[in-house]
Simulated assay, not measured.
Amino acid sequence: MENVKIYLNFFVEYLQIERNYSQYTIVNYVTDIEDFFLFMKEQVILHLEEITYNDTRLYLTQLHKRNYSRKTISRKISSLRSFFKFLVREEKLNENPFSLVSLPKREQKIPQFLYEEEIEKLFSISDCTTPLGQRNQALIEILYGTGIRVSECCAIRLSDIDFYIGTVLVHGKGGKQRYVPFGSYAQDAIEQYIHQGRKILLSKLKTPEEHSYLFVNNRGNPLTDRGVRHVLNEMIKKTSLTLHIHPHMFRHTFATHLLNEGADMRSVQELLGHSHLSSTQVYTHVTKDHLKRIYMSHHPRA
């Protein structure tokens, strides 16, 4: 199975150079493909050319027996389909054994979001006379005000922000970039944090070299995804809210509130940086519930 490892290395180079995928995404691809290689070993399949459609069905059965979720199974099959499609393109194989394998239907989960009164409680909890309080206020204002992913938020540099027109340059998945507007509340919070709190936090850096990342931790280093989760959990503890919050909730809330207020789907898709409209359409389930509540509350014959 020596050629298998060589082909995988070629595929990784393709994902890095041509597709410009993140290291995290590439690791997932490699993990999924290597899992299938173990299956090949168990089935004494020595060469990729020997794989048949029946083998792929058997592998799919094994994944179900391991009690993987439909989402995980879909990802694994999709990774393998891409891998073999690449090999066919490179003329290493004549056909893709996974081309006919149908993906299991994904569970349609309703995105969790915050109600307006819950958001207001979070906005009123920070002590904006302290450096960390200013940072926390700017953080939740930018997360809710733009709907960007937490990884995109942590990657913001000072040069990405244009206060004159109220936009931030967001570095998204796969090296894609987009400009996202933010409102006056976010602008006020960010400006106060940059001119006051951030300078104080940066002064705690052990190394003399400053960096340009917008959000920093209490030691002046760039704030990480994990750090954002910790900040939000600590903020929740100071409120009367009993919910479990995660950073992506702000993204869900951003999209839900926009659609509830009448924003069109295409505009929300562009703001969120979704490649496909289907990714944005999941939020219509939430807005339908919202419309139903309005109907039941106000229609005379409801």
Rank of each mutant, 00 (worst) to 15 (best):
L46M: 06
Q134C: 05
S74L: 01
C154P: 04
I77N: 00
L63M: 14
K65A: 13
E42N: 13
S79H: 00
R57H: 05
I142E: 07
V88I: 12
S102H: 09
F84G: 00
Y68W: 07
Q137M: 14
D35W: 06
T146W: 02
F83G: 02
H64W: 13
L80D: 08
E117T: 15
F39H: 05
E42T: 10
F123D: 08
K76V: 09
K76A: 05
L46I: 06
K121F: 08
K65G: 12
R57S: 12
E34K: 07
K105C: 10
E120T: 10
S99R: 01
T72D: 07
K76I: 07
T129N: 11
N94T: 15
K71T: 14
C154K: 00
V88T: 11
Y59F: 15
D127F: 10
R75C: 12
Q108H: 11
D55A: 08
S79G: 05
S99H: 02
Q108S: 14
E117L: 11
R89E: 07
C154M: 04
Y59C: 03
Q108C: 10
F39N: 01
K41Q: 09
L80C: 07
L60A: 07
K71W: 10
N54W: 06
Q43Y: 00
V44W: 01
K105F: 12
F86V: 14
C154Y: 02
Y115K: 04
Q108T: 13
I73N: 01
T52A: 05
C153Y: 03
L122A: 02
E49W: 01
K71I: 12
E90F: 07
F37H: 08
L132Q: 05
I33S: 05
R70E: 15
S82H: 02
D55Q: 04
N136P: 07
A138P: 12
I110S: 13
T56P: 04
V88A: 14
K65F: 11
M40P: 09
E152A: 06
L103A: 10
H64I: 09
L103N: 06
I140Y: 02
I119E: 10
G133L: 04
I77G: 06
I33T: 04
T146C: 13
L103F: 10
T52W: 01
I77E: 06
E95G: 10
E50V: 04
V44E: 14
K121E: 15
L58Q: 04
E42F: 07
V101L: 15
L87K: 04
E34M: 05
E117S: 14
Y68T: 08
I110A: 06
E118C: 03
T56W: 01
T130K: 06
I142D: 12
T146I: 01
C153R: 00
I45V: 03
S78E: 03
Q62M: 08
E90T: 11
V101F: 02
H64A: 14
K109G: 12
F86K: 00
N136Y: 01
Q137L: 13
H64M: 12
I73W: 00
S78L: 06
P131N: 03
K121M: 15
S82T: 15
K105P: 10
K105G: 15
T129L: 09
I77T: 04
